[in-house]
Computed example of a mutant assay.
Amino acid sequence: MTCAYDFHLPGLSGETIDLSQFRGRPLLIVNTASKCGFTPQYEGLQHLWSLYGRDYPDGMTVLGVPSNDFGEQEPGSAEEIKTFCHRNYGVSFPMAARAHVKGPDAIPLFKWLGKEGGFLSRPRWNFYKYLVNREGHLVRWFTPLSKPTPGRVEEAVRRILLDH
């Protein structure tokens, strides 16, 4: 795989999310969990999606990838995850089905992100964030300590959107 747009993954609602549909749009890919101290970051992710993506053809796309890899903090079914995210945070950005994001069982997208970002970029907890430019290349990654808004993540998103 040469860029993020070469991947596809199962969606939370049973559909296939083909990342090629977002070609030309920056991506913010985040491994998420519903029962984590960082879970309130869903609110900031939804804010970014609403402000810079949802209604703009050349805006960015937020993609949530729920994972139970860290502290078993995403134990629910697809329907439970979807309901939790929508009810508590109004999440309307695309969400993948629960997946492994670390180790040998990691889905291909997260193996690629780890290879592109290097050893330290591999998720070691929930809510790692990966910013992909319009060409589908990883340009920045952030640990869970970097909130989506306000701050470094939102500034990086704005910069990448201006590079059009």
Results as ranks from 00 to 15, higher is better:
120 L>T: 12
153 V>F: 05
52 Y>T: 10
108 P>G: 06
94 P>E: 08
119 F>T: 14
63 L>M: 02
132 V>T: 07
114 G>C: 10
76 G>P: 07
51 L>M: 13
141 W>N: 06
61 T>Q: 13
43 E>A: 15
12 L>Y: 07
12 L>K: 08
121 S>K: 06
76 G>T: 09
162 L>T: 12
99 A>S: 15
24 G>L: 11
49 W>N: 09
152 R>C: 00
1 M>T: 14
14 G>A: 10
150 P>Q: 10
11 G>W: 08
130 Y>A: 04
33 A>N: 06
5 Y>G: 04
66 P>T: 11
76 G>L: 06
79 E>V: 13
102 K>W: 11
41 Q>L: 03
84 F>H: 12
48 L>Q: 02
100 H>Y: 11
139 V>G: 02
60 M>E: 03
164 H>K: 13
87 R>Y: 06
149 T>Q: 02
128 Y>Q: 03
114 G>F: 03
143 T>H: 08
127 F>N: 00
115 K>W: 12
164 H>F: 10
159 R>G: 14
54 R>S: 10
17 I>S: 06
141 W>S: 04
129 K>Y: 02
125 W>V: 07
122 R>H: 12
68 N>S: 10
77 S>K: 10
86 H>F: 13
38 F>T: 11
84 F>M: 09
152 R>H: 11
42 Y>S: 00
97 A>S: 15
9 L>D: 03
120 L>H: 05
111 K>P: 08
161 L>G: 10
127 F>W: 00
119 F>Q: 15
85 C>D: 04
52 Y>D: 04
66 P>H: 08
77 S>C: 01
55 D>C: 08
107 I>C: 14
69 D>Q: 07
111 K>D: 12
154 E>M: 10
159 R>M: 14
113 L>K: 02
163 D>V: 05
80 E>R: 09
84 F>N: 05
21 Q>R: 15
163 D>Q: 14
98 R>E: 07
129 K>E: 05
113 L>V: 06
32 T>N: 08
18 D>C: 04
47 H>M: 09
1 M>N: 10
36 C>R: 04
80 E>K: 12
117 G>R: 00
154 E>L: 05
60 M>T: 05
40 P>L: 06
44 G>D: 08
150 P>S: 03
98 R>C: 07
128 Y>N: 09
2 T>A: 14
72 E>F: 09
121 S>A: 15
94 P>A: 09
129 K>G: 01
99 A>E: 09
82 K>P: 03
57 P>W: 01
123 P>K: 01
11 G>F: 00
87 R>F: 13
157 V>A: 07
74 E>W: 05
73 Q>C: 11
14 G>I: 12
107 I>M: 14
105 D>N: 13
37 G>T: 13
136 G>Y: 05
8 H>D: 13
21 Q>K: 14
67 S>Q: 08
89 Y>A: 04
12 L>E: 09
15 E>R: 11
119 F>R: 15
62 V>S: 02
139 V>K: 13
129 K>H: 07
93 F>A: 06
103 G>A: 11
77 S>E: 10
142 F>G: 03
129 K>R: 05
79 E>M: 11
75 P>C: 11
126 N>F: 03
105 D>Q: 14
62 V>W: 02
92 S>P: 01
39 T>P: 01
107 I>P: 00
114 G>P: 01
126 N>K: 04
6 D>V: 04
75 P>E: 09
143 T>I: 07
51 L>A: 14
26 P>N: 01
136 G>L: 08
151 G>P: 01
127 F>G: 03
89 Y>I: 00
